[in-house]
Nucleic acid binder design. Structure first.
Lengths: 212, 212
DNA sequence: GTCTATATGGCGATAGAC
DNA sequence: GTCTATCGCCATATAGAC
């Protein structure tokens, strides 16, 4: 674990001296995960190939499989890594409904700066609606968790009388997630068509009386 | 074209006498398209295989390719057929904004009775955000057309003062499409979670003052 | 109109040398 | 830790018999 924290983005070996014995391995792993994200984003998991990933990294398939022993494990590692990054990125207090809405708008804006990640989740979540997909339970759990968090935010807004109509917090949660997912599809098809953050902001203004 | 109209759903040959010379062929084509829809829905286009389709129909791959000469052509035929059916199903007058909203709710309800079709469009539209996908331009055009139609409806609603906030018709259109797409993903992951028609109805009630 | 046989190539994964 | 070589499988598509 200490080795993980010591990893370098540059991937240079032994820059930190002989004690950095895992540095290269970790750099390679990171490069593989970056490439895998691209490949799975563009082709989805099922038709993305580890061969393609290995070529982008500049190693052989066998070399790749030394680090991630199978294709499903590689996908799991990609998703785990994104979750780690997201955890550091959005550590917001969702108990405050207003700042939660601001956080979501910020998130939408940030996503627009990473089209590959948006593509990954968009493609994967659709692909993974099939129960046999290796990431199926991941996405089921993910949506449960996201709904749980948003529920807290909208309950706060409702108690403060900030929800515009008599819409229930549950429905507001489902609609918010739907809007975010649906905007991504339209945006991926034509990035000049809409600004995801702006669009979400307008949605919140129809849903709430928050001056956002 | 006459042959097409004379086709039988049962697939029985020569029921109509020797003049029904294309009946069997058309029945086979229909069976192939049904099976292809299932396969592409469950696995997406790229990882769905014509082998799988052929097995479901009970013919060989070569037999299938006699009717649809390549995999992309098979996909195109599936989409064309759905468009034909949809044309008969939703010939509504979208100039009347209120009845347009009702039509969309009905459409959402109807979609819930055909999970396979929802899965097909959900999976394909995500997959087809990639420009190299054979259905890419199909989906680009489809979204343009859907937006054009909905735009008319929301302009009508706005002129009649039925849109709740100062939201633009364009934004309302994009949000409506996003909601419909996004609800489908959540619904496919857990069909007991929400009722797509009901959810859309609540959305329209936050967006408009139409008593819907 | 449907079949068998086949060409051609990509895939995930393993074995074993270095 | 990375490679080459290879296995076994599945894919799309074609050729030609019936």
């Amino acid at each position: 674990m200490a080795a993980k924290l010591a990893a370098h983005k540059t991937g240079e070996v032994t820059v930190r001296g002989p004690r950095g014995r895992y540095a290269k391995s970790d750099a390679t792993r990171a490069a593989i995960l970056d490439a895998a994200l691209e490949v799975f984003a563009q082709g989805g998991y099922r038709s993305g190939s580890i061969r393609d990933v290995a070529q982008r990294v500049g190693i052989s398939e066998a070399g790749l499989l030394h680090h991630f022993s199978s294709k499903p494990r590689l996908l799991a590692a990609v998703l785990d890594r994104r979750d780690e990054l997201a955890e550091h990125l959005v550590p917001r207090d969702l108990n405050d409904g207003v700042s939660a809405l601001h956080g979501l708008i910020e998130l939408a804006r940030f996503n627009a700066s990473e089209p590959g990640v948006v593509e990954l989740y968009c493609t994967l979540s659709a692909e993974a609606t099939s129960p046999s997909h290796p990431a199926h339970t991941y996405f089921v759990n993910r949506y449960v968790e996201v709904r749980r968090r948003l529920q807290v935010a909208f309950e706060d807004l409702e108690q403060r009388g900030l929800v515009r109509t008599g819409i229930s917090p549950e429905a507001a949660v489902r609609a918010t997630i739907a809007i975010m997912d649906g905007l991504q599809v339209q945006w991926l098809l034509d990035k000049s068509l809409l600004d995801m953050g702006e669009e979400l902001r307008e949605f919140f203004r129809t849903l709430t009386t928050v001056d956002i």
